[in-house]
């Protein structure tokens, strides 16, 4: 098992990317694509952001300009599924759809689309009523998502189930529930679904973001987490992940293990 780092930076929520999308200026987007690829990202998240006038057009353009400079697979991040489909049509490598909650109409739109384009899906353990707190409720959603994958001819291996971490300052009681959910999600099927987290959420609004991110990431990895949407340019975080992988005996130790981790 190898840990998939999903680079979070190409997101219109960040000022530089938001402006680049508005002006159709490829430079900042391409720079971040290269920088994140060099840091070892397995996927690059692509989000047009809230200010884009035409999400479908912007998504297609972003995918195009990123693919001009690197061939790292993309995680197409949007709540607009037409925008995601527009991206999937031109992705050169199998992409990751970010994301689909546990709601029937959305599942019916996204899962067949994933099948058609050979994409994988980040599936969220929530529905219209919001994010549940207990591990049990999160796992119940995960179970439904795994069953839906089977229904639409996908393997559990095509799912990255996200049990949804919340900021530890305002929703502290969620953090251990997510860890327990991660443990149980790994036992839902064989092969098990992948799991992922929007890691940076855990530290939102705190002054200790890098420390909290990497501590929680290591804790989650011991519970079976095998990917995260994260700041792949946070060297200490990447070092912590590389180290956790070695200590979990998931990758073979060598003196330069942290370097090798970034090269694969």
């Amino acid at each position: 098992m190898a840990f998939y780092m999903i680079g979070e930076r190409i997101n219109g929520m960040f000022k530089d990317i938001g402006e680049a999308v508005a002006k159709f200026d490829p430079k900042p987007i391409q720079e971040w694509a290269i920088k994140q690829t060099e840091a070892g990202a397995a996927y690059l998240d692509v989000n047009v952001g809230p200010t884009a006038a035409d999400r479908v057009k912007s998504m297609r353009w972003m995918v195009e300009v990123i693919q001009e400079v690197c061939d790292t697979p993309l995680a197409l991040d949007s709540t607009n599924y037409d925008a995601i489909e527009a991206g999937l049509e031109i992705c050169k490598k199998p992409a990751l759809i970010n994301s689909c909650p546990c709601e029937r109409p959305k599942i019916e739109r996204v899962f067949p689309m994933a099948k058609k384009y050979g994409a994988k899906i980040i599936a969220l353990t929530m529905d219209k009523s919001g994010i549940p707190k207990s591990a049990d409720a999160r796992v119940a959603f995960a179970m439904e998502l795994v069953a839906a994958a089977d229904e639409f001819g996908l393997s559990p291996d095509d799912l990255f189930i996200d049990p949804l971490i919340l900021p530890c300052n305002v929703a502290q009681d969620h953090a251990p529930e997510v860890l327990e959910a991660l443990r149980q999600i790994r036992t839902l099927s064989d092969p098990p679904p992948h799991t992922t987290l929007g890691l940076s959420n855990v530290s939102q609004g705190t002054p200790f973001r890098p420390l909290i991110n990497r501590t929680y990431c290591v804790m989650a990895m011991t519970c079976g987490l095998d990917s995260a949407i994260m700041d792949v340019n946070d060297d200490e975080l990447v070092d912590a992940i590389a180290t956790a992988e070695v200590l979990l005996n998931q990758s073979i130790y060598c003196d330069s293990y942290a370097k090798v981790f970034r090269q694969r």
Binding site: I252, Y253, C254, S256, V260
Partner: peptide, 10 residues
């Protein structure tokens, strides 16, 4: 020694 094997390759 698999660790040395990997390191030497690097």
């Amino acid at each position: 020694d698999i660790n040395i094997l990997k390191q030497l390759n690097l």
